[in-house]
């Protein structure tokens, strides 16, 4: 989504423990990491990557166009704002616990500046064999034509690995994150891959809480062009207990697993009963195509 093997990546918060560890893994995967940013640490070179004080300096020196953010939650607003202002095309926010008001402001600013955000609290984006912009395990799958869009991190690793083990290739793995206010919504990601010529099948991984699965179902019902497989976690969760990411208010049918599964079914989405059913359903769809 808005990235490719040619993307030039800058890591914000590259000198922190998570930042440096995952920079190394992304680089090993083949991602073109051209710069790092940590305020007041400009001038260092880490793992062969030059570090700058500001995004603008990094952009001027390296031409970076994509960012990944590992800075602590309370500094995330300032860091991402800087990336947006420097016209970084896509900013992926890994950080968790970013305040809601900060995200509201960042999403609005990104829309105004016509650049893209994904996250916060997300695993990022993987285009297998081409680019890894995130923290997901990178041995899950190879390149192919199935796009995976997920609200959860580890659950989507589980499913992506099962897909990969079944010999099915993946055109993109998109972890949009589980917070209520996020840069890319499930609907937006579904819209993108509904149009993406390289994607033949879409997998949606959702969970109880919020209303995004229902909204995505409404979009697919009217505009869906491709077969879609859906899995929803949380069928056994007792009502009224706050579990999962957003801890959303489960009201009426919106937010419950039953409500989401029903909305998916109404939109013609193939429902997987367990995470491991997903690859079987994809294989069946393929036979029919």
């Amino acid at each position: 989504m808005y990235i490719s093997e040619n993307s030039k990546v800058v890591v914000q918060g590259i000198t922190g423990a998570q930042g440096s560890f995952h920079t190394k893994l992304m680089k090993e995967y083949g991602t073109k990491i051209v710069a790092g940013v940590t305020p007041k640490k400009g001038g260092q070179v880490l793992n062969g990557i030059p570090v700058f004080d500001t995004i603008q300096e990094a952009k001027d020196a390296t031409g970076c166009d994509t960012s990944i953010v590992f800075v602590p939650a309370r500094f995330t607003y300032v860091a991402v704002r800087e990336a947006i202002k420097a016209q970084i095309h896509m900013t992926c926010i890994i950080t968790e616990n970013v305040p809601v008001f900060d995200m509201l402001r960042l999403v609005e600013l990104a829309n105004k500046e016509d650049v893209h955000l994904i996250g916060p609290n997300c695993p990022g984006i993987l285009i297998p064999d081409k680019i890894k912009l995130g923290i997901m395990p990178d041995d899950m799958c190879h390149y192919g034509d199935v796009a995976i869009i997920s609200k959860s991190g580890t659950l989507s690793y589980e499913i992506t690995k099962a897909i990969g083990n079944a010999g099915i290739g993946v055109s993109a793995y998109i972890g949009i994150g589980g917070d209520s206010i996020r840069g890319t919504t499930m609907v937006e990601a579904a819209q993108y891959y509904n149009e993406d010529p390289k994607t033949k099948v879409i997998v949606l991984i959702g969970e109880i809480g919020g209303s995004e699965e229902e909204e995505t179902a409404a979009f697919l019902k009217s505009f869906g062009k491709k077969p879609v497989v859906g899995y929803i976690a949380g069928k056994s969760a007792p009502k009224g207990k706050r579990m999962g990411h957003a801890g959303a208010i489960i009201s009426g049918d919106v937010g419950t697993a039953e409500g989401k599964i029903k909305a998916f079914k109404d939109a013609g989405v193939h429902i997987a009963e367990t995470p491991w059913d997903v690859p079987h359903i994809i294989l069946k769809i393929r036979e029919e195509l």
Binding site: K151, S152, T154, L155, S236, M243, G244, H245
Partner: peptide
């Protein structure tokens, strides 16, 4: 004990389907 809200929820579902009763999330 699991990591990630979605994976933990899915695990609760799988155990429940097998008639095992989770003590916690």
């Amino acid at each position: 004990l699991a990591n990630g809200a979605g994976l933990t929820l899915a695990l609760l579902d799988v155990l429940t389907d097998l008639d095992l009763k989770p003590a916690n999330f």
